[in-house]
Design a protein around this nucleic acid. Sequence first.
DNA 1: ATCACCCGGGG
DNA 2: GTGTACGGGTGAT
Length: 709
Amino acid sequence: MEGYILDAYTDLRKNKIVLWLKGAKTVSVEFNYMSSLYIGGYGLEEAERRLSAINGIDLVFENVRTAPSMKSSVLLRVSSRNLSLLRRIAEGLQTSKSGSGLSLYDVDIPYEQRFMAENGIFPFAHISVRHGSEISCEESVDDISYEFPPLNTCHLGISFRESEGAVSVASATVDDETISGDEEHVLMEISRRLNASESDVIITHGGDSGKINELYSRARRLGLGSFTLGRAGGLQSTYRSKSYSSYGRVLYKPSPALLMGRIHIDAENSFLYDESGMDGLVEVSRLSLIPLQRMARVSPGTAISGMENVEAMKRRIAVPYRKNRSEDFKNAADLVVADRGGFIYTPQPGFNTDVYGVDFSSLYPSIMEKWNISVETLNCGCCRQDGIRVPELNYHFCRKYRGIVPAVVGRLISRRRRYRTVDDPAAANRSKALKWVLVTSFGYTGYRNAKFGSIECHEAINAFGREILLTASEIAGRMKFRVLHGIVDSLWLKGEGDIDEFVKSVELETGLPIDIEGRYRWIVFLNNKGNGEGSLNRYYGELENGKMKVRGIEIRRSDTPEVVRFAQRILLEKLRGSSSSDDFMRRAMEGITAVREIVRSVKQGDYPAEEMLITKRTSQRVEEYAGNSEQKKILVELGKRGITVNAGEAVRYVSGRNSSGRTAIPEHAADIGNYDASHYVSLIARSISTMLYPFGLTEKKVRLLLTHF
DNA sequence: ATCACCCGGGG
DNA sequence: GTGTACGGGTGAT
């Protein structure tokens, strides 16, 4: 039997690892798998005595290296083919271990991931299986020119009807064809078509948010035993929906609907698919050994963590379950130094011409790779005298042992570099996916639960970053450039120097690659509205290739209503081609004149209500909100209509007004057209003022210009 | 003025 | 299952 690994998961009821192989036919293969975990710490003998009463497990003491110290010690290995039993033991130990002095290793790496690592296989590898369980694989994961057969992809849309509180399936679309008729027909026709077309991938919008589960529950209700979306019946058992915190904000993750033998991707719930498509997902899935169907639902941080686990398994290092390492003691002076973030050079607000934008590509990951930054290499005992010193900080990193994080990040950087030399859309998408994983890899080192990071690593990376940017700024000065603005890994330079010479010198002195983003025909740096000083992340400008680059202002924000974006877009288009400060101002006034047309329509009250919708994510449930915020208002309104919103879900509303003040009108309300015109005129005026404030156009002045017909 | 709360990043 | 720290903005009080 042979084929490409389409999906992999652990079936805890059968105690098997299941692989789906896409070959001449697409079939599943099940494997017995002996997995294990390690126990260390005090009271091992006692633990062994208690565990030896359990049937179906093997216990043996072994000398094993553990992260992050990388030292060998004697640990108790608990192995079993009964994966569900092993998991129950792990869970039992986790809950009882607090205060017991025991520490656990290798307990939270999914079994299918460990299985693939131990067998030298990975998602989308071509493998053969002989005699039921002998796996062979010719492919190397390091190969970047891998191929696999085209995946049959199907777009599935489902619409429901609701009558008297009962939900039923109204119709469906399979690719471009609509299926309607009675419910039983619709359900069975979906099933039949997926089978007939041998679909491998099913793309839905909102499939995880109840739609797929609803299909199955309707099929059960109607007694349609043969209904299935997968190649085998039913859904994989999985976790419940939950609200969680990521990227500093609360997100809502619905319970995923995972098929068997087909890959369901909910386009609304997959960050990486959205950014880099199928090619990007496959790339990251191969490197992290996280099967594609799961990869489509996790954050890049989980991918990083997966790759680090794989690297640790390769080195036969046991990975602790929870890191129980506190930060090293720091005195007050250290804290002040360490706490500084990336390089900052505040710009003067205003209009500039002939500016170069340059940035270091993947600066932080390159630093991690170059200076071996990882928790196991931090302040090692073997390089006390001659380790890699960190600027400003009293830390060092090991020169002898290659850290796990730099090894992983280094591989990603070199893969990405190679993909960037290939001119083909798949390579571009893979590169994009890697870019995201690399961006996340820095933040992940500062994440308190990251196993191979620590806050000291985070600080060290920042310290190296500041030094490099300072060096680059000095070189710019030597080469007749003036630094207008700089932040973290980017510089904006004005002057008559030779930019290619600058890049060469910087690369020579720092050893890190720098990219020229381009030459701006003009660029406007904006002010901070609070104190009037230059803002670090708000600017807009036109590159010589005609591309507009805009950061930080309303048009870039997801909570800005379309009507306001439209106004800013009109102004930006008018500014395109500005050749001088005077020309810019003339165009700006023309822009304001054009925006007056929008304002006129908004004031008349006939602007389309959907263009007025404000979208905001909620971070709490309605009862948890303090005060009377906009979010609370809309959640109360929705509550009246029987709609509850989970923390992390977005709400859409139009801003209205009644006798007692501002109101929020929910998206589907009947009075959606009753928007508060004056409020929206303010928003438009403010957004124009945001862009033109450095030229004396306050919100008040803009409002006058916009409304004084 | 202060507090509570939301958004961004790259291409 | 799960990236940080923080600049920056808005609306209510």
